[in-house]
């Protein structure tokens, strides 16, 4: 694995508040990393720090040399880092082609045009080269912004909420086109998003961020199945917390005993995904509190021995409210952490 970029203890303060608080992260060449967090958690600020658009207050950003550090700040134009902005930031006074060629001023005009057209072909918009940005749809503008950022063949490209401005029915298509273009370019990419599904579907690596800090990094599967905390778990989807006691690497719950490898004895928390609860004939008895039909699945609220849990399941016969059902816990979709 080659490292495209390393963040080490990066801090950014706005007044007394740390918008980015000691963030360390490694981006691998050719891989897509998604940075997921709620709005205002500092993820966009982190992107601007990486691009050199803001000076940082601590830590370092480095490739094989230091880009931002305590005493050095390489200006953004010297960093070889592409940026796709949330509002795309296309230049309204230039044609699509000139927008894409904007960063290629060192090349000859002919070479510049060739390169711009190549990029436009990669995002399937070569036929719009002479158009002006205002005449394009949102999805087309997004792809132009991507082509423009990739035209300089940067080692790393940063994408700030690249699909947030698009209508729901466009998103899937543009997302696939973006992934394809990024893979083709072979560049490292860091995509900021607040959409869990988007992050899970796109990422090779996932970084979960909240209140300026990275909560967890890992593959999407690992982050989803084995969250390190309730906050990290909830960034990726609903989760039921169950307080419990660990004794000898085991923890007892109303739904049976759970493995708690590596945890010392004491209080802990089981984090149970809604889909870990399934209806079986021989499970633990539970009272149905509420039942919401949601298409392929149903959301069911259950009470099991004084504990309220939310379940999500595919059922043919929907359980009736106030009736009793029997529940089994799928151990692969829950994890025990030190609370």
């Amino acid at each position: 694995m080659t490292t495209a970029l390393t963040l080490d203890g990066v801090r950014k303060l706005y007044g007394a508040k740390a918008a980015v608080d000691r963030v360390s992260l490694t981006l691998e060449a050719g891989k897509i990393t998604c940075l997921l967090g709620p709005s205002g958690c500092g993820k966009s600020t982190l992107l601007r720090l990486i691009a050199g658009l803001e000076p940082l207050d601590g830590g370092t950003v480095s490739t094989d040399h230091i880009l931002s550090g305590p005493r050095s700040h390489l200006p953004p134009e010297k960093r070889d880092i592409g940026f796709v902005f949330q509002d795309y930031a296309l230049f309204p006074h230039m044609s699509v082609e000139d927008n894409v060629a904007f960063g290629l001023k060192r090349l000859s005009p002919a070479e510049r045009q060739k390169r711009a057209l190549l990029q436009l072909q990669r995002v399937h918009l070569a036929d719009r080269a002479k158009a002006f940005p205002q005449a394009l749809s949102g999805g087309e503008q997004q792809r132009i912004a991507l082509a423009r950022a990739l035209a300089r063949e940067p080692a790393l490209v940063l994408l700030d909420e690249p699909f947030s401005g698009l209508d729901a029915h466009l998103k899937a298509g543009v997302r696939d086109a973006t992934l394809e273009a990024l893979r083709q370019a072979g560049t490292a990419a860091l995509i900021v998003t607040h959409d869990a599904e988007e992050a899970l579907m796109m990422a090779d690596h996932l970084a979960l961020m909240d209140q300026g800090q990275i909560l967890q990094t890992g593959t999407p599967q690992a982050c989803y199945r084995h969250p390190v905390s309730l906050a990290a778990a909830r960034l990726l989807g609903p989760a039921n917390p169950i307080d419990l006691l660990v004794k000898d690497g085991k923890a007892d719950t109303v739904l049976g005993s759970l493995d708690a490898p590596g945890l010392t004895d004491g209080t802990a928390m089981a984090i149970v995904r809604p889909e870990a609860l399934t209806l079986t004939a021989d499970g633990t008895p539970a009272l149905v509190l509420a039942n919401r039909f949601a298409g392929a699945e149903s959301w069911i609220k259950l009470r099991i021995g004084g504990l309220d849990l939310e379940a999500r399941m595919v059922t043919r016969a929907s359980p009736v409210v106030d009736s009793q059902v029997f529940i089994t816990l799928d151990h692969s979709a829950c994890t025990v952490t030190r609370a």
């Binding site: 601007r48 960093r79 902005f85 960063g103 912004a145 423009r148």
Partner: peptide, 8 residues
């Protein structure tokens, strides 16, 4: 910012 990250 776009202009700066595009090398201007």
């Amino acid at each position: 910012r776009a202009s700066r990250t595009l090398g201007e």
